[in-house]
């Protein structure tokens, strides 16, 4: 199992580096933009905070973008939320199905390793890559605060990155399941999962009737504006996320173990 895990890490290293640097540097650039926009920010913040449902949707009614934390939450929160979800989806959606899509499944599964161990090694690789991605991005964001001469909001940043990691794991778990039951790599389906989750949250925050159902989506507990405004962690959302993650992983083990391997 270790050999499969190490090989998967090596195969995904390039992708991990590209996504970590891209999202991390984008976030860093966003933070640094605060300095140049600070002068105009007060009037913009007042305007943005009075846009009703749209202000709620982007968290600008609870947090002022005139402050560095508010600016981070609204700008970097969106960049990292979308970038991380897309990376999680792309990473997980092909990690199992690539064996059948690339006709390497017969080689791998003719070696003395059970399908469950293969799934475990690949799942482990996804988790390690997502954790590494979060760490690299967090370092860039912390660097952004330092470069602005601001104090790093350690506890809020840590909670935000932890919730984002949990959200990424949930999205990757759904894509991991799709990868385990499909003999083809479905990048489109993976990106679809990530974008549907994002849009679901966005619409849920704009449409008042949907607010009660926000907890079903992974973005509900990873919302940067809520975390940086000091709101309580959305326990129901986290619980649903954990259940979805566990069910998706267990289903992947069961389904991949039972299905016929495409030639």
């Amino acid at each position: 199992m270790r050999a499969v895990f190490v090989r998967e890490i090596r195969l995904n290293m390039k992708q991990l580096i590209i996504w970590s640097l891209t999202v991390g540097i984008l976030g860093l650039v966003c933070i640094l933009m605060y300095d140049s926009m600070q002068g105009d920010m007060k009037s913009m913040a007042d305007m943005f905070s009075q846009m009703g449902a749209f202000s709620d949707a982007f968290g600008m009614s609870t947090l002022s973008i005139a402050t560095v934390e508010g600016f981070f939450a609204t700008e970097v929160g969106t960049v990292h939320g979308l970038g991380g979800a897309m990376f999680a989806a792309i990473l997980a959606i092909g990690i199992i199905s690539k064996e059948e899509d690339g006709h390497t499944g017969e080689f791998l599964l003719s070696l003395p390793i059970s399908r469950r161990r293969v799934v475990a090694a690949k799942g482990g690789c996804v988790l390690v890559c997502l954790a590494a991605f979060s760490c690299v991005c967090a370092l860039f964001y912390a660097l952004g605060f330092v470069m602005l001469g601001e104090d790093i909001p350690f506890s809020k940043l840590a909670v935000f990155m932890a919730m984002q990691l949990l959200m990424n794991i949930e999205i990757s778990a759904i894509c991991f399941f799709i990868s385990g039951v499909s003999p083809k790599i479905n990048i489109g389906a993976g990106l679809g999962v990530a974008l549907i989750c994002y849009v679901y949250d966005l619409v849920g925050r704009v449409v008042p009737d949907m607010k009660d159902y926000l907890f079903m989506g992974p973005y509900s507990y990873a919302n940067a504006s809520e975390i940086f405004s000091g709101a309580d962690i959305a326990v129901a959302g986290v619980a649903v996320g954990l259940v979805i993650t566990v069910v998706a992983y267990v289903s992947t083990f069961v389904c991949f173990d039972r299905r016929d391997l495409a030639s």
């Binding site: 006709h103 390497t104 003395p112």
Partner: peptide
């Protein structure tokens, strides 16, 4: 799994990474 330890299989297509 035990069986595969003592089996050497060569598929017809021979695909690798």
């Amino acid at each position: 799994e035990k069986i595969l330890r003592d089996v050497g299989y060569m598929p017809s297509e021979a695909w690798f990474y």
